[in-house]
Design a protein around this nucleic acid. Structure first.
Length: 278
DNA sequence: AAACAGGCCTAAA
DNA sequence: TTTAGGCCTGTT
């Protein structure tokens, strides 16, 4: 990519966007720390680096892409978070701990596909599988002297057979990914339309994909389709809810941005330590 | 060695 | 409607 199309942009004040928390809170799998306090990744087929300097977060991208939307910078997280306070002392801790997280508006197909691969897996292995998927079937993107890869489209994956995915070592999830790719490529699963539909309808449509249940559909809804009221519950969330919320607790009390509350709870449960669950 | 990992599927009560 | 067992692969 030529220097002419490269853009370095100011993203946000450092207290509004914490790259480390945002990229490592569990919502995405492709951004990696580069050792200099920055993160490098690919979205929209475009490579970028994000770092903090002098109290601001900057982005150096390989070309134009909707980065402000990607980082959800038009949303007032402070205002939303205030609505979560007072639910319980534990919830206050979650909000404080997660301050700086922004829910990325990831590409729809990537979100669906990566969370299919995430099931019953740990994060390092998920990241490995996703990187092998991109290296094998994505487009190469040169960036600062190294070769990165875009996320492969559903159209590229749809014609493949499970054996073609063997190098990924994703096990029994291979046919799940291919079913999803085919449904999307053939237009039977219209992710753009589902993004505009109501959360529940979208959830039910996603669950028609083999290997997509309540949790994976919830993650696709929240992280890819922009359904911010989605509240996916995995084992960590189940533990946190059981330990710190009433048995009949209804996440709907968190309102139309319940998904952010979910992320705060999840991130605190995972990073806050096992001592939360003794 | 055996259990477990950020689920889901199928079969069977 | 809920429950048990199995599933690829990798790590502890």
């Amino acid at each position: 990519m030529s220097a002419e199309t490269r853009e370095k942009v100011y993203l946000a004040a450092a207290d509004a966007l914490d790259p480390a928390k945002t990229f490592e809170c569990g919502q995405c799998f492709r951004w990696r720390a580069d050792g200099d306090g920055g993160y490098t990744g690919v979205a929209f087929g475009t490579a970028a680096r994000v770092w903090t300097e002098n109290g601001t977060v900057c982005l150096d991208a390989d070309g134009p892409a909707p980065w402000r939307d990607y980082f959800d910078l038009e949303t007032d997280y402070g205002a939303i978070s205030r609505d979560f306070l007072g639910v319980s002392p534990y919830m206050d801790e979650c909000v404080a701990f997660g301050r700086g997280i922004r829910l990325l508006r990831q590409e729809k197909w990537e979100a669906l596909c990566t969370f299919i691969l995430s099931q019953c897996n740990n994060i390092p292995r998920i990241r490995g599988i996703v990187e092998r998927l991109c290296a094998a079937f994505g487009q190469p993107v040169r960036f600062h002297g190294e070769t990165l890869y875009s996320f492969p489209s559903a159209q590229v994956l749809a014609p493949l057979a499970p054996e073609d995915l063997a190098p990924l070592r994703c096990g029994y999830r291979a046919p799940y990914v291919l079913d999803a790719a085919r449904q999307v490529a053939e237009g039977r699963l219209d992710l753009d339309a589902l993004s505009g539909a109501c959360c529940g309808d979208s959830l039910n449509a996603l669950k028609c994909v083999s290997g997509v249940g309540e949790k994976v559909a919830g993650c696709a809804n929240l992280f890819g389709l922009g359904h911010r009221e989605a509240f996916p519950v995995d084992v960590w969330m189940r533990r946190a809810l059981k330990a710190h919320f009433p048995p009949d607790f209804d996440p709907a009390v968190f309102g139309e941005n319940a998904g952010l509350a979910q992320q705060y709870i999840f991130y605190y449960a995972r990073s806050g330590g096992k001592e939360n669950f003794v």
